[in-house]
Amino acid sequence: MPQTVVITGASAGIGRATARLYGKRGANVVLIARGQAGLDAAAREVEELGGKALVRTADTAGAEQVEEAATAAEQAFGPIDVWINCAFTSVFAPFDEITAEEYERVTKVTYLGFVNGTRSALKRMLPRDRGTIVQVGSALGERAIPLQSAYCGAKHAINGFTSSLRTELLHRGSNVHVTIAQMPAVNTPQFSWVRSRLPRHPQPVPPIYQPEVAARGVVHAADHPRRKQYYIGATTLATVWANRLAPALLDRYLARTGYDSQQTDQQPPSGESNLYEPVDRVEGSDHGAHGIFDDSAHSRSLEAALARHPALVASGVALGAAAAGAAVRRGLAHSS
């Protein structure tokens, strides 16, 4: 029997790349996002690759819309096996330049959207005592950086929410599993459509990985959900350990380097942002999985490969810790 998989934020970026992988498996893939053009293109890709697709246009900030999509998913394909929360939005700006309304919007989509998706998934999975939920997290949920306070706050909240839920499932002896795939900087279209008040074009903090690296991590986490979380990309592991070993030092490093490292030397995007409305809502406006950083993005990750082989993870952790401390010290010395 093919798996039935629900993916929020499926129209672009990591969600889009993950949908393709499940399409190759012949899965039933339920694609949820706001942008119709991106969803339609994702559905075509899933079916061309051998899967079946169902498109549901929904804003994950609205619990009722998410619940309606979940109902439609099971009416079309039967019980949901895997639910992947990936939808998000953000604002690139110093905190005091983000309005209260913008902050609320980012939080509703990027945090409460995950809560809404998880609630709808559990409503169906708990009575059957089976199913897996994957939260697509971020290294920024472990270690915040400047200019992304709303996004970092939401990703931190997802970690806390998921840890609390995990203990409740353990208390119940449930066979429903929840795990987090913590992501590095990824080359997605968000950097061209995010709302930004930066003087130059925003970019992910290098090194940058392609969405396919992230998608492989998501699928692996769904296949092996008993681990609390997975760190995708060596930089994610290094960031986590640097924050654990030398948080004050890392504060100073990010204060000195975090502004320039999140901007290119190009002019800021001139188009509309996707904060309140999708930018791929009309035919011909599909953005695909990749952003504009293909020339500098990595298509492979040694650490992600290590994560798929638990016997080697210990050595990866040790290397990550050593690299993290060295990188921070070098950065501070260089910027002094």
Rank of each mutant, 00 (worst) to 15 (best):
P184W: 14
E212M: 08
S273M: 01
V55F: 04
R130C: 13
S261G: 03
L165C: 12
L169S: 05
A37E: 06
I32R: 01
G284F: 03
V106F: 08
S335M: 14
D81T: 03
G233Y: 03
H287G: 14
Y111F: 14
V240W: 07
L169D: 06
L112F: 12
D280S: 13
R128I: 06
G117S: 00
L319C: 14
P202M: 13
H156Y: 12
P206G: 12
D294V: 03
A323T: 13
R195H: 10
G288D: 04
E48S: 11
A72L: 11
R300W: 09
A305G: 13
A70H: 04
H156W: 10
S120A: 15
Q203N: 03
L147F: 15
G173D: 08
I292C: 04
M183R: 12
F114P: 00
H224G: 11
F88P: 02
V5R: 05
A326F: 11
R172T: 13
G13L: 09
V82H: 10
G258P: 05
S174D: 15
A58T: 06
F191W: 14
H224A: 11
I98C: 08
I80E: 04
G131D: 01
F293H: 12
A33C: 01
R330N: 15
L319M: 14
L237N: 07
A222E: 03
E45R: 07
A70W: 09
E104M: 07
H177L: 08
P189E: 02
A311H: 13
W83L: 14
P146H: 12
G153M: 10
G113D: 08
V5F: 02
L312M: 12
A17L: 04
C86Y: 00
Y230T: 11
T257P: 06
K24I: 02
F161K: 11
A311S: 15
F92A: 15
F161E: 14
A214C: 10
I208R: 05
G9H: 05
S296H: 03
D251V: 07
G38C: 08
R329D: 15
A70Y: 06
K123V: 09
L170I: 15
R56H: 07
P211A: 09
F114G: 00
A33F: 05
M1G: 10
D96K: 00
T110Q: 08
H177Q: 14
E97T: 15
P199N: 10
A154E: 14
G331R: 03
G35S: 08
H220M: 05
T110H: 10
Y231D: 00
G320L: 09
T71C: 02
V240K: 15
T71W: 01
T167W: 01
P225L: 11
R143I: 02
